[in-house]
Design a protein around this nucleic acid. Structure first.
Length: 602
DNA sequence: CGCATTATGAGTTGCAGG
DNA sequence: CCTGCAACTCATAATGCG
């Protein structure tokens, strides 16, 4: 107990030797590395037809049926997309469903199914992909040529069977917007959104697409101008690689330092944010970096194609945490939290040095997760080591190291390894000691909540730019708050929290945040909600009107269907919990559009 | 029922070495 | 170019105990 206390508080007096620190950051800082690995080039959805097994197809079909689509439509959409890419299948289904609201349409689709390779469907898919690319035939070039879908809507109108959704679509189509664009706008803004907001959205989307095109041209031009032979060769290599994969995916930077870490000289990073998406309000989204393939492409696509910032928290603390962040915050003049936390295992756990074998060369711990090693395992390790006086043979060393890395074990005695204690995790993650302790919270729950949390120093570094912008404090909308990593980060930065609206499913987590809020003598107001579903447009309007808008929207949506440690249900972004990402998108868009309309009417 | 304990791989990436 | 290997990962479900 005393040991824990000592190690926990030790990190406050900054007495570790600075050589180590320089060494650590030297390695990252010296490797001059162009951070721009993200390609702004168009992403074209070519459904990857690789995962073909009857089983997976069945799974796919039942998945979409579970989402409320008709079976006939689902199998049709899967065929259209080659059966692989759930993303493009979903897109197709969404477009179908907006066109298929009336039973008449469904009949037409099913009776015409022998035209299954029909022009209608092929065109639909082609046009959908055109939306994502900067293709030559821009939709705006020919706004008044009436599309097939537009015709359908018109015929529906004349037959008098037009749903409210279709009515809006038709209105937009009559205004000269493409039906596909209109339906995408409705999907993203929600079906109840007014026509004026929808037109705003579409215009913004068109604008950002245009700018993306220009940026791409710009990049191409630059490449041609400075193209040394070496660059050309590299580019060619990349192109070939791209053709093999037939799809450009977001790649993780190496080293994983995002747009910069505190020890680095600020580097010029050209990062593009569409004009219409620049803050305020600012937003900050987080999730695991090592998600299944394509997940970050989708996330980025729904968050205005903004380039994710991938950062490993090992550059901010003594343990690794590889995460991706998408935000529209400025990235100049960031500063770290003070005091700088311990950056190596040795600094974080001084007392463990006595027991640390020389052949365990770890300097950083691995990622903190939600489950810890069993006592049986640490016992197996001890009995394996006790047979030897000096260093064990290499095979035993290898075994012990494998397990220690896998379970993030530290040395706590002679031949004794142990998993981290909850309070040690709190320290490593940048939370105050005992943040998750007491108040009826079980130890198991502490591990779970901590494993799901932000690394505070990392997040605070990104949010630090808000301090000068909001000297009087901010209104915060915190989605999937967990144990309040965002709130703690802002508080530790000295940014006053005026009003915090926090949405968190777990009661124990809400209790933790509430108790932290009271202990830190906050003068603002904390409002919490149980479920993101409760936070609908009406509620948001009411909140925005009473607190005069949000300045920042923070959220890390559930990762459990994305995380590598999940052996059971790593289902990707469409998984049961991780699909709540789309709730983040919904709420973000809703807040933005409400605040736009309030600003206009002022 | 709450809580603690335990066992349960795959997917992806990077890298060294042909 | 390819191939094998090492490394790493915000977890779930079943079970037992009080």
């Amino acid at each position: 107990m005393q040991d824990a206390n000592a190690s926990g508080e030790n990190y406050l007096d900054v007495d570790w030797n600075t050589d180590d620190e320089l060494e650590i950051f030297g390695e990252a800082g010296t490797s001059a590395h162009p951070v721009a690995t993200y390609s702004t080039e168009a992403v074209v959805d070519t459904g990857e037809a690789s995962t073909s097994a009857g089983d997976s197809r069945f799974k796919l079909i039942s998945h979409f049926i579970g989402m409320g689509f008709a079976e006939a439509l689902v199998s049709k959409a899967i065929e259209e997309n080659g059966g692989g890419d759930t993303e493009s299948i979903l897109n197709t289904l969404l477009t179908y469903s907006t066109l298929e609201d009336s039973p008449k349409e469904e009949k037409q689709l099913s009776t015409n199914s022998d035209l299954s390779s029909s022009d209608y469907n092929e065109n639909l898919v082609n046009e959908l992909s055109d939306l994502d690319s900067c293709s030559d035939n821009d939709l705006e070039d020919n706004p008044h040529s009436i599309s097939e879908k537009h015709k359908m809507l018109l015929s529906l109108e004349s037959s008098g069977s037009l749903s409210e959704k279709d009515r809006k679509l038709l209105d937009l189509a009559n205004m000269g917007f493409a039906v596909e664009e209109a339906s995408i706008a409705m999907e993203r803004c929600g079906p109840n959104e007014s026509v004026s907001v929808l037109t705003d959205f579409i215009c913004a989307a068109q604008l950002s697409r245009e700018e993306n095109c220009h940026l791409e041209d710009d990049l191409k031009a630059r490449f041609i101008c400075n193209g040394s032979s070496k660059n050309k060769k590299r580019k060619l290599h990349e192109m070939r690689r791209k053709n093999e994969m037939a799809e450009e995916t977001i790649r993780l930077p190496n080293p994983m330092i995002g747009f910069g870490i505190p020890s680095m000289q600020p580097e010029k990073v050209d990062r593009f944010i569409p004009e219409s998406e620049r803050g305020p309000p600012y937003f900050y989204y987080e999730n695991v970096a090592l998600a299944p393939k394509g997940v970050w492409d989708t996330i980025s696509r729904f968050l205005y194609e903004i380039e994710p910032e991938f950062v490993d928290s090992k550059y901010f603390s003594a343990c690794a945490r590889k995460r991706g962040y998408i935000h529209n915050l400025p990235i100049e003049n960031r500063f770290p939290l003070i005091p700088i936390p311990p950056l190596t295992i040795h600094q974080a756990f001084p007392l463990s040095k006595r027991w640390w074998p020389t052949w365990d060369t770890r300097e950083k711990l691995n990622c903190i997760q939600t489950a810890i090693a069993s006592a049986k395992l640490t016992e197996r390790i001890r009995s394996a080591l006790e047979r030897y006086d000096g260093d064990p043979p290499e095979s035993v060393q290898k075994y012990v190291m494998e397990q220690s890395r896998k379970w993030n074990l530290v040395w706590v005695g002679r031949n004794k390894v142990a998993p981290l204690e909850p309070d040690e995790m709190e320290m490593l993650l940048g939370f105050p000691k005992n943040h998750t302790r007491g108040g009826g919270i079980s130890r198991t729950d502490r591990y779970k909540s901590l494993g799901n949390s932000f690394q505070v120093d990392t997040v605070a570094y990104h949010l630090s730019v808000l301090k000068d912008m909001y000297p009087n404090g901010i209104n915060l909308l915190s989605l999937f708050s967990g144990i309040g990593g965002g709130e703690v980060a802002l508080h530790r930065l000295g940014i006053k929290l005026k009003n915090v609206v926090s949405v968190e499913k777990s009661k124990v987590n809400r209790d933790i945040v509430r108790s932290w809020w009271e202990q830190t003598n906050q003068t603002g107001t904390l409002i919490d909600f149980d479920d993101v579903q409760q936070v609908d447009d009406e509620r948001l309007e009411q909140l925005i009107d009473t607190i005069d808008g949000f300045d920042l929207i923070v959220g890390g949506s559930p990762c459990n269907n994305l995380a590598g440690s999940n052996r059971v249900s790593r289902d990707g972004l469409e998984g049961k919990e991780s699909s709540l990402f789309f709730e983040y998108v919904r709420i973000l868009n809703s807040v933005k559009s409400i605040m736009r309309s309030r600003r206009r009417s002022r």
